[in-house]
Write a protein that binds this DNA or RNA. Structure first.
Length: 501
RNA sequence: GGUCCGUUCGUCUAGGGGUUAGGACACGUCCCUUUCACGGAUGAAACACGGGUUCGAUUCCCGUACGGACUACCA
């Protein structure tokens, strides 16, 4: 086995990929690139009851969108194919049999109903039921049943599961790359099901077998897996793979923005922000969940934002391209505690990255129905004022549509004699202006106002209201330039006649 | 309940035995400006608590509290 870094992202295709999953994928990717290792993608679809149409594609598209490229795995292939666990089904039974043969695992015939009943009984007595070294001696399994009975059940096709025979007294200690030493006693681990009665492996078995077979060097996953890490280590031991066991790094959780607990879909609905990278149309419920991409977040912003949720470079640099993240990334700088999901920060990053985009690019992408030269001017006018690209289009509406009414408060206080005189003078002088550009318009305006003895500041806001209907907005001169002389004239005409002189 | 993990401004975090505890988001004020925004400046804002160890703990150790994850034939 080489000492090359090989990491994997192993999502389950049960719906839209959660943004926390994207962060996990990102950290794996950054680590792989940083170390010159490989990034694998494995699809963990061992739960046939939770299969969701389109989910795998969604994962692929989401990773592709944020710029995480896969070296080996589902969608690109590789030496350890297949990378979809459902297609590796025979492998798991083969390995489970090895454990059976070596006495590290056993058949169990207890039904789910029986076990549920046990759990309830225990719970009503204030304790928790565990299928473990003690209770297994009183349950229906190949440890308590005679070889003949087991054989009879098996050949009769009776449903069974295969469970790990967890040692009664063994200390399990491992050094998590983020949390240092973690020690758990095997008595706290129960005899987890390895093979389900439908012939599919559970996550635990499939995960360990595949990580071993695929020569994974580092398992970087969410903290929710920390409690089952001891079990996985026991499994590596049972297989005799302890020497090549991957190193573990358990990432801090992404928490709700307010209150406590893990970030969930509910928070998205409550807070009015996305919690999925891409929009997701659930084929079962028919619900549509919003996505960062569709909401107008730039992928660079999402990556930068996500990278900083649980990790930081230790410098005061905030803006990082993917290449810079790769350069700066290290597992050691990942924090231990959970990070609250603060959408404000994401918005700020988006604003920063939006400003970095070229006017031309944005114009082509978002104002494709407007003549390019004009579209570029519009983008330039709004780019630094908005958070999302689509806001440019929304904000620009006033350039295309003359105001229906005028801000009452401003009209009543600013539509005075000076304003009337100045605006009318400007309107009268306008037709003679040939070169209708911002600078010339401004010259004309200040010349006219000077002639009339009016200070520009006195009437600017009223002029803005006359032309746009509202008291605030981007540079008025540039706005007029974009509207064009005819339109400006028409609007001034309308304002004067509507408001009266 | 049990097991495990965690705890520095409201939020993301830097730091680490002696610091004016640093930065960013958000917030306040001021400046710039034709308004709004951008930008600039500036302000308010934190070491959960209790014991040790130490000349000295926010930093190390132990408790407590609080929070979280897990506790399925789901991943």
């Amino acid at each position: 086995m080489s000492d090359q870094v090989r990491v994997r992202f192993a999502p389950s295709p049960t719906g839209a990929l959660h943004i926390g999953g994207v962060r996990t994928a990102l950290y794996n990717y950054l680590f792989a690139r940083k170390t010159g290792g490989k990034m694998l993608l494995r699809i963990e679809d061992t739960d046939q009851t939770r299969f969701v149409e389109g989910a795998e594609n969604y994962i692929l598209e989401a990773l592709n969108w944020v710029g995480i490229t896969i070296d080996e795995g589902q969608s690109v292939g590789g030496a350890h194919a297949p990378y979809r666990q459902s297609e590796r089904k025979p492998i798991y039974m083969e390995y489970a049999k090895k454990l059976l043969d070596s006495g590290k695992a056993y058949y169990a015939f207890d039904t789910s109903e029986e076990l549920d009943a046990m759990r309830q009984t225990f719970e009503s007595q204030g304790s928790a039921f565990q299928y473990n070294a003690i209770s297994r001696t009183r349950l229906k399994n190949s440890l308590t049943l005679s070889a003949e009975e087991v054989e009879a059940k098996l050949s009769a096709g009776e449903p069974y599961v295969i469970r790990l025979k967890v040692p009664a007294k063994e200390e399990i200690r491992f050094k998590d790359l983020i949390r240092e030493w973690v020690v758990v006693h095997s008595s706290a681990v129960d005899d987890k099901v390895l093979m389900k009665s439908d012939g599919m492996p559970t996550y635990h078995l499939a995960n360990v077998v595949d990580d071993h077979l695929m020569e994974i060097s580092h398992v970087i996953r969410g903290e929710e897996w920390l409690p089952s890490a001891p079990l996985h280590i026991l499994l590596y031991r049972a297989f005799g793979w302890e020497d090549t066991m991957p190193k573990f790094a358990h990432l801090p959780l992404l928490l709700k923005p307010e209150g406590n607990g893990k970030l969930s879909k509910r928070d998205a609905d409550l807070g009015g922000f996305p919690v999925f990278p891409l929009e997701w149309n659930d084929p079962v419920s028919g619900n549509v969940a919003r996505g960062f991409r569709e909401d107008g977040y730039l992928k660079d912003a999402v990556v930068n934002f996500l990278a900083f949720l649980g990790w930081n470079p230790g410098t005061e640099q905030e803006m990082f391209t993917m290449d810079e993240l790769i350069e700066a990334f290290s597992l050691e700088r990942i924090s231990k505690s959970g990070a609250k999901f603060d959408i404000n920060k994401a918005k700020w990053f988006n604003q920063q990255y939006l400003k970095l985009q070229s006017d031309e690019e944005l114009a082509k992408q978002y104002l494709s129905d407007v003549e390019l030269e004009k579209a570029v001017k519009i983008v330039h006018l709004f780019k630094e004022r908005v958070t999302f690209p689509q806001e440019i289009v929304q904000e620009a509406q006033f350039l295309f549509n003359a105001p229906e009414n005028y801000d009452e408060a401003i009209v009543s206080s600013k539509w005075n004699d000076d304003a009337k005189k100045g605006i009318v003078a400007f309107k009268e002088a306008l037709p003679a202006l040939d070169n209708f550009v911002a600078e010339e318009i401004k010259h004309l305006l200040s010349a006219e106002l000077e002639k009339a003895g009016i200070k520009m500041g006195k009437i600017m806001q009223m002029l803005r209201v006359a032309i746009t209907g509202v008291g605030a907005g981007p540079d008025l001169m540039l706005s007029m330039e974009i509207m064009g002389k005819t339109e400006v004239l028409a609007r001034l005409e309308k304002a004067v006649s509507t408001l009266g002189v």
